[in-house]
């Protein structure tokens, strides 16, 4: 077990290095010239050279990469060419908004999928099962950016129930920065008006983002509960005369939910891609918007930093999921 964890950690380091390598060299072949963007159209040759020198862009690529890695190991992701701030502090400022959004979406999709998937499996072959499967596939099929627009059209433009975007109304004083998650911070400071306002802003983007999570979760739970229902120990429990509810609770759900944990990694992949478009539509000031703006502006350091942070979170999630699975199911052997 110890050796296995060590191997997984070593692989994680390899993946993170791979990500820096690939994104660094990819970003350096971007057609746009960030120096020109930065200096403006009227900058002279001397000015351009000065900026190039300032950011070390006149060095050969391997030297630039070496410097980038050295800084990285010190937790320094460089300076954004556009905002002229530290990328590390930029990301720290944008990340909580994304974590809050995806956390609620994960929770909503997870619980919804759990219920829908189990109910569909217990009523296998019925109309309820078909409805559950259809809703799951619909959740995975609907384009997040389109669903976001439709929700805005219906619940903002037509009904006026929810705001168009953003995290808080301009008239609401944001709670002091404790965790950066507005709903938590406002609760901690007992600021109920900020809390309800934050929830109100979260509603539409969370529902949009949760659709895919719900779809994936429903599908996996349905399949795995169906699997468990066919197992001998479930038949044995029934034969023993246990009540139906007891069989479901003690034997079916406990074993059937295991695979639900393992797809957390996949769920995260879905969320990461959803966050990009959902944040764009709802003007959500998170990492997705930040990364997108950085890509558009050929902002090397910011692009690299944001991609790296997303990749690291992703790799860590998968590591925890793998180890958790190992813990939950000792039969698993890794080849």
């Amino acid at each position: 077990m110890g050796g296995l964890i060590a191997r997984r950690l070593a692989f994680m380091v390899f993946v993170i290095w791979g990500v820096t390598f690939v994104t660094f060299f990819l970003s350096r072949v971007v057609p746009g010239d960030p120096v020109r963007l930065l200096a403006g159209p009227r900058a002279g040759k001397a000015e351009l050279a000065h900026i190039r020198d300032l950011y070390g862009l006149d060095e050969p690529l391997p030297a630039q990469y070496r410097r980038y890695m050295t800084d990285l190991l010190h937790g320094d992701l460089g300076t954004s060419f556009v905002t002229r701030r530290d990328v590390t502090s930029d990301i720290a400022a944008f990340l909580p908004a994304t974590l809050e959004l995806s956390g609620y979406a994960l929770l909503l999709g997870f619980v919804g999928g759990l219920v829908a998937g189990s109910v569909a499996a217990f009523r296998r072959g019925s109309g309820v099962d078909a409805a559950g499967r259809l809703s799951a596939i619909a959740g995975l099929s609907v384009p997040a950016f389109w669903l976001a627009l439709l929700l805005q059209l219906l619940f903002h433009t037509q009904l006026g129930w929810f705001p168009l975007g953003g995290r808080l109304d301009a008239s609401v004083t944001p709670p002091p920065h404790i965790t950066g998650l507005l709903t938590i911070d406002s609760l901690l400071t007992l600021n109920l008006s900020a809390f309800s306002n934050a929830l109100w802003h979260l509603a539409l983007p969370v529902v949009t983002l949760a659709a895919g999570v719900y779809g994936l979760m429903t599908r996996v739970v349905r399949t795995s509960v169906l699997d468990v229902l066919g197992e001998d120990y479930v038949r044995a429990a029934e034969a023993k005369g246990l009540t139906r509810w007891r069989v479901i609770r003690r034997h079916v759900l406990r074993n059937g939910l295991l695979p639900a944990v393992t797809i957390l990694g996949l769920e995260f992949g879905l969320l990461a891609s959803g966050v990009f478009v959902v944040e764009a539509v709802f003007q959500w000031p998170g990492l997705g918007s930040y990364a997108f703006n950085a890509i558009q502006a050929a902002d090397y350091n910011a692009t690299l930093g944001a991609t790296l942070v997303i990749a690291i979170i992703y790799v860590f999630t998968n590591l925890i999921v793998d180890l958790g699975y190992l813990y939950l199911d000792p039969r698993i052997r890794y080849s």
């Binding site: 995260f268 992949g269 990461a272 891609s273 990009f276 990749a311 992703y314 790799v315």
Partner: peptide, 9 residues
């Protein structure tokens, strides 16, 4: 290495 990275990103 490729699979360890969110595909869409």
């Amino acid at each position: 290495l490729f699979l360890a990275f969110p595909a869409f990103i």
